[in-house]
Amino acid sequence: MLAVLVLVALVLITVDYRQGGSGSVAALQRGAMTVFGPVQDGFATAVRPIGGFFSSIGQLGSLRAENQALQADLEELRQGSVSVAALEQENAELRALVGMQQQYQLVTTGGRVVAQPPNAFEWSVLLDVGADDGVAPGMAVVNAGGLVGKLTEVTRTHSRVQLLTSPSAGYAVRIAATGETGTLSGRGARPFQLEMSDPEAAIPPDAEVVTHAFQGTEIPDAVPVGVVETPPEGFEEGARFLDVRPYVDFTQLGVVLVVLNGPQQPEEFDPEALVDDPEAPRPPTPDRSEAAGAEGTG
């Protein structure tokens, strides 16, 4: 029995490893997401007030200490105060999201985080929006703090976001102040790792890191990501890897926005357009126009 099950597990691992994201095992995973997603969604809706309850326990305690006589009333009001606290928190979160959307002129659709994966080495969350809401794999996900991640799997009603904290993906970013580019990768619960393209580049203290539009991705340009953590003794000379502290609190994701109008990078990239018209309208980033100029002259 033991041997049989170990063998089955090993065969599954091998098959999944060889087939990658397109094989039958991955399809099985998507099937499980299609079936279990709505169940998780319903359960999340049912237990959401419990979180609000725990967050309002502190308030309840101080009220009791102030006035024992109010306890009876409190019991009656508890249900109400719980939902009000939860609603206020949600309200603040949604307001911040609206601000984010207007600032970057993104066309987005809001999604609620329903569930997280069951094991510790998987950095993704499940959203309650799917293909029916117009989302597709590859789209960027943001919240009020900045970039959250990108969609990897989408079913009709639900979708999975690979968080920025996941070590499995790298993101093109740049230092907002200097335009120096680099690649950002997650390291789980620890700060992000930023590898600069030019290790000699000077990094200003507390430099802000923003996304860098890059061919083949749908991540919008200049979405904030985090702040470079300056070591107390200053940067080492030519340090290639820098720590970046994210703006987004990945443990407290509630409502996020899926960006529907990310840069649609043309698959059929027209080479003639590049040569004849190097000044074609592009995202207004200094290094990008430099790159276009270089290609035009060369």
Binding site: L2, L5, V6, V8, A9, L10, V11, L12, I13, V15, D16, Y17, G21, V25, A26, L28, Q29, G31, A32, M33, F36, P117, P118, N119, F121, E122, S124, T152, E153, R160, Q162, S166, S168
Partner: peptide, 21 residues
């Protein structure tokens, strides 16, 4: 196995099954 199937595509299916058995 159930955990693996409910994880994202980066999770190798069968890994948790092996660990938990």
């Amino acid at each position: 196995l159930a955990s693996d199937l409910l994880s994202g595509a980066t999770q190798l299916v069968g890994l948790s099954a092996l660990v938990l058995l």
